[in-house]
């Protein structure tokens, strides 16, 4: 599983403008793909942790996100949680190919089958 997800991330999360991405499974297993020196695996782990904590807020307020995009001045963070609990987080710089590809990547992640 670990290798499969790592390969998927490496193949799919490489567009210019990507800082890094990670997937967290319900059992706590995390895989990371970083493409920018400023964004090491530790930061991706923190990102997954923060987003994982934020997710329950939506269901508590009767919102059921397919995905959410946290938009900052110079970049975006896309968070996608599957019904089986897999959580994808990806950080990209604004106005880049990576930012353009977020919807496609999110849809692929939701459809991903092991």
């Amino acid at each position: 599983m670990n290798d499969f997800l790592q390969q998927w991330l490496a193949a799919r999360v490489n567009a210019p403008g990507t800082l890094g991405a990670g997937i967290r499974l319900p059992d706590g297993l995390c895989v990371y793909q970083n493409t920018d020196e400023q964004f090491p695996a530790e930061k991706i782990g923190n990102l997954l942790h923060q987003l994982g904590q934020a997710q329950p807020q939506f269901s508590e307020t009767n919102l059921a996100p397919q995905w959410s995009t946290w938009i900052f001045e110079q970049g975006k963070v896309r968070c996608v949680e599957r019904p089986d609990g897999w959580l994808l987080a990806i950080a990209v710089r604004a106005d880049t190919d990576a930012a353009q590809n977020l919807d496609l990547l999110s849809a692929e992640f939701l459809a991903l089958q092991v």
């Binding site: 800082l19 397919q66 959410s68 110079q74």
Partner: peptide, 20 residues
């Protein structure tokens, strides 16, 4: 705010949520 501390993206602007 917690996310902004981890990211080199500047200030937070908004959160967009895609719903069913």
């Amino acid at each position: 705010a917690a996310l902004a501390a981890e990211l080199p993206f500047g200030n937070f602007d908004r959160l967009e949520i895609k719903l069913g």
